[in-house]
Simulated scan of single mutants.
Amino acid sequence: MARPDDLVVKHPFVVAHRGASADRPEHTLAAYDLALQEGADGVECDVRLTSDGHLVCVHDRTVDRTSTGAGVVSEMTLSQLQRLDYGAWHKGPQTDPPDAAGNGDTGLLTLDALVAMVLDWHRPVKIFIETKHPVRYGALVERQVLALLQRFGIAAPASASRSRAVVMSFSAAAVWRIRRAAPMLPTVLLGSAARYLGGSAATTVGATAIGPSIETLREHPELVDHAAARGRALYCWTVDEGEDVDFCRDVGVAWIATNQPARTKARLRAG
């Protein structure tokens, strides 16, 4: 029988920011596979729409920084994006480059493939999906994300705490679109300004959590209690330094987004 201590939720949980992106190229199969092996409680990704309507995991507006090609994601087709390698720029260990079909450890990762990977893992892991704005496709991004989650059967969880997916954005309008269409799906309103996150915006759009940067939270640790008083959790990004991990634990952050999930998990266990 479990002891009472075993039933206590132990915060913070660790979210692999773009996968284990300190050690593997961000937003690649290699990065997420390593994050899952390292015990991440959740994984985070940024999504954009291609010109032919596919959701792909790319942070920047262009692929110039993270691939062997160049161009604006929203102006390229899935096939064009799949011809590129997304790992050659990274200093980590060499992994398998993509083949002609875009497969491989450092090929283009679609949101469809990432969700399937997370749901097939041998333990429950949450996926935090950030929709990027402003973009040329506007609200279509959220509609496509919800349609994908519906196909996987995770768009309408029994409760926010049991949800396998969380949708986030710096755009309040985007968070509101998700909340209105899928009221049980947890959402995070991201931001860098304490006044914005601590004000009425999160209430107006129905966000279930707020997401300040570690710099903002350092300056305004009261955001944790402020959110909790309104029934919200706090998701903090991007937390890599040991003293910042300790700080987040001490003030009661629920979810830590980090590029180094293994090291962050180890630090929390040691603490």
Results as ranks from 00 to 15, higher is better:
residue 228 A to L: 10
residue 42 G to F: 05
residue 249 R to H: 15
residue 80 Q to D: 14
residue 27 H to R: 11
residue 223 L to S: 00
residue 113 A to M: 07
residue 190 L to M: 13
residue 91 K to L: 12
residue 39 G to W: 06
residue 231 G to R: 04
residue 250 D to I: 08
residue 52 D to F: 00
residue 228 A to F: 10
residue 70 A to N: 09
residue 150 Q to E: 15
residue 40 A to T: 06
residue 125 V to F: 04
residue 46 D to L: 03
residue 101 A to H: 13
residue 122 H to L: 12
residue 32 Y to N: 06
residue 250 D to L: 13
residue 64 D to P: 11
residue 94 Q to E: 15
residue 250 D to Y: 10
residue 161 S to I: 10
residue 131 T to G: 00
residue 118 V to E: 01
residue 6 D to N: 09
residue 218 R to A: 13
residue 146 L to M: 11
residue 180 R to N: 12
residue 182 A to K: 01
residue 87 G to H: 07
residue 73 V to L: 04
residue 161 S to P: 10
residue 23 D to K: 11
residue 222 E to C: 06
residue 153 G to S: 07
residue 207 A to M: 05
residue 199 G to V: 08
residue 212 P to I: 02
residue 6 D to Y: 06
residue 66 T to S: 14
residue 270 A to R: 14
residue 223 L to T: 02
residue 187 T to M: 05
residue 182 A to F: 04
residue 75 E to K: 09
residue 95 T to R: 13
residue 103 N to T: 08
residue 195 R to F: 10
residue 52 D to H: 00
residue 84 L to P: 06
residue 197 L to Y: 05
residue 269 R to P: 14
residue 198 G to D: 04
residue 105 D to H: 13
residue 17 H to K: 05
residue 245 V to P: 04
residue 133 H to K: 10
residue 183 P to K: 01
residue 96 D to S: 12
residue 150 Q to K: 12
residue 170 F to W: 12
residue 233 A to T: 10
residue 201 A to V: 07
residue 159 S to Q: 06
residue 219 E to L: 15
residue 186 P to A: 03
residue 43 V to G: 00
residue 108 L to A: 01
residue 70 A to W: 08
residue 146 L to K: 06
residue 132 K to D: 00
residue 185 L to V: 02
residue 214 I to C: 04
residue 198 G to T: 05
residue 101 A to W: 08
residue 218 R to F: 10
residue 229 A to H: 12
residue 240 D to H: 11
residue 271 G to E: 12
residue 146 L to N: 04
residue 152 F to E: 02
residue 267 R to W: 11
residue 29 L to I: 11
residue 159 S to P: 10
residue 150 Q to Y: 07
residue 93 P to W: 09
residue 38 E to T: 09
residue 38 E to F: 08
residue 211 G to H: 02
residue 146 L to G: 03
residue 33 D to Q: 14
